[in-house]
Write a protein that binds this DNA or RNA. Sequence first.
DNA 1: GATGAATGAGAATTCATTCAT
DNA 2: AATGAATGAATTCTCATTCAT
Lengths: 216, 216, 216, 216
Amino acid sequence: MARPRNTQERRAQIVTALLTVMAKQGYERASIVAVAAEAGLTPGLVHYHFKSKQEILLSLVVCLHEARRVELDARLARAGDPVARLLAFVDAHLDPAADPDRAAAACWVTIGAEALRQDEVRRLFEELTRGQAGELRLLLTDALRARGRTTADVEALAAGVLAAIQGCHHLAATTPGVVPAGSPARTVRRMVMGLIDSQSSAASGRPGRSTGGKAR
Amino acid sequence: MARPRNTQERRAQIVTALLTVMAKQGYERASIVAVAAEAGLTPGLVHYHFKSKQEILLSLVVCLHEARRVELDARLARAGDPVARLLAFVDAHLDPAADPDRAAAACWVTIGAEALRQDEVRRLFEELTRGQAGELRLLLTDALRARGRTTADVEALAAGVLAAIQGCHHLAATTPGVVPAGSPARTVRRMVMGLIDSQSSAASGRPGRSTGGKAR
Amino acid sequence: MARPRNTQERRAQIVTALLTVMAKQGYERASIVAVAAEAGLTPGLVHYHFKSKQEILLSLVVCLHEARRVELDARLARAGDPVARLLAFVDAHLDPAADPDRAAAACWVTIGAEALRQDEVRRLFEELTRGQAGELRLLLTDALRARGRTTADVEALAAGVLAAIQGCHHLAATTPGVVPAGSPARTVRRMVMGLIDSQSSAASGRPGRSTGGKAR
Amino acid sequence: MARPRNTQERRAQIVTALLTVMAKQGYERASIVAVAAEAGLTPGLVHYHFKSKQEILLSLVVCLHEARRVELDARLARAGDPVARLLAFVDAHLDPAADPDRAAAACWVTIGAEALRQDEVRRLFEELTRGQAGELRLLLTDALRARGRTTADVEALAAGVLAAIQGCHHLAATTPGVVPAGSPARTVRRMVMGLIDSQSSAASGRPGRSTGGKAR
DNA sequence: GATGAATGAGAATTCATTCAT
DNA sequence: AATGAATGAATTCTCATTCAT
């Protein structure tokens, strides 16, 4: 007698529609009507399943994050030594085979921009980013140890790696022309290795290699 | 007899106001009324000096870009060898002493997001980014040669460096907590050096150091 | 379960309101707010049913045209010989019994003025006018033949008749004082007959009566 | 010491500019800024010479009317008999050689539309039209008498002729395609002659020729 | 669950007019 | 006379959200 519950599917439909529309129009311009149309639904129904537009956005952020999570777990499971695991993190985010969705990259840029001005979005975004940073620190620590380096700067290194990844999405989304195809994953891997190798040895405290400023 | 022109000052005033408001509210929410209020003007006057809101945004992009440009030129003038010049590029964008303006970083994130959906903004943003990439390629080429490395991957490297810089701004703006103070400049310098040193030697063709996937 | 659609009625309501307001204020001054108030609706709702103000205008043009069309068909059905049918065309547009709506005449003037500067309006207006001219040519041709006249100038004649009709609306709307009540239909009928009778005979080629320049 | 007065030239300049801009944009959209630009002046100066935008429009109406007036007087001076004088009236308004200005025709359409909603414009327009109608009645009366017809319907006839002329301008301006080149003057002349010849004889009271309704 | 009409609060933009210079 | 900045009201249009059905 009661209708079968279909809230879960409906919510997924709507979130996916927001992803699509937002990638083209940005968040503000992704009107509920447009999202509903993209999902093949009516505007009223959208608000039946979500209490506000912001709630859809938050859902989308969680969704996109979980997709990365899944990708990452699969790669970590296949990876062997600590260094390979660290590089798996990079690949999970940048390997073109992993994230075939150009729309998702555009969305991350938009989400970042929204995080600047919607507190709820910022909170969620920060929490997720913090989680990623934490995980990355663990991976980095293991890799550094496996290479016999100190783990002193691990926070700064993690931030740098996250930044490079985020920056690649940003650049690829906004200025595809300057990014050679397939290069981001490779280049970021090399940057990561460069960071590790330039870390001083754990025992001696002398640098792996010199860097920066007074370099050479 | 005639009233003296003050368009230049007014335009600067308005652009600065947009910078301020946009950093907090994003572009869409930076209403003309809000921008005018921030600048101490009336909305009508804003449209007397700019034909549209978009035109203010484009002006702001040019402005911010020029500020970086000036900073970069000053640092290049002081830098000595090719490697120092390359690192000066990084510092010009990330040295906290250089860009004390937290608002500017937030704006770059927003600008990137707008570039996704406003063609005019994209065109301008792309042109400027392309210019930066070109300059960076030159600096990289010189640095690689000075170190006796091939210049084969220079495009990918330039993209990677730009991405890392942009990503640092992004991360610092959206999730300041995960970025240790002052670390971005230092970390990116190390990533840049890592990229150079992992490039194969010009003569032999053998890699400087291994990297990536099967990384030893 | 679903809410019943009422778009058709609403659109009709809004179009009628535009007719009323536009007759008094002209198109530009017929603001959406004024039209909505006239229709007893809110401005937002007007834009829910019409995507732009222009679309309302286009709808109104079609509406007014259809009303004439209906009137004309009724009269043609009642008319007997070719000449009577031709005069029915005149009456359908000018008989005060046919078009009791003073507002409609004012609107046609306004519509003509808008056609001068809105391409979409011009296109529609032209198409409809062209259709009328075509029909009028047919009626004229039949009437001329019935009277044994050549059909040589039929295009110019049709244009003249249309102009006279349009001009009557114009004059009646802008300067009612100079138009004796009920005279337009009668006078235009006489002008039409004058055109026919001054056309040369089909066989002989000699004019029915002299006219123009050196007219004696 | 005092500047030489140039008000007259300036006013003429501005009125001409309104003519040009209004022909393309209509009255409402003919902004003071646009008119000033067209005249090569500044907006402030326009209001120095005219107290309001409406006043420019009224000036333009007078101007256009005077131009017709001059044209008409010239033709009347050359015309001989009463019928020729009557037809001169038609030609003064429609002869392509007389009114080479396509913009003027468009303006008359626009002016008519404005007369519907601006009282001052209506008053002026009505006064001028009434004047024309009066003059036309005189010409018609003379022509009818010369042809031995009654002058009974002269008001209705004058209205019809004015309507036909106005309608030709309207049609030519809005739908040039349906008006064969050069035809308006010729066709209206024939309509005018038709009106005269269908008027009943002065003495007998029997119609010149049958017309309309039961016209067989 | 679902529909789609309805609302009301802004949004950018335009513009006649005023006024200090 | 002339300039051009400044104002303030009005305009079209958008949209998240609500709600009767």
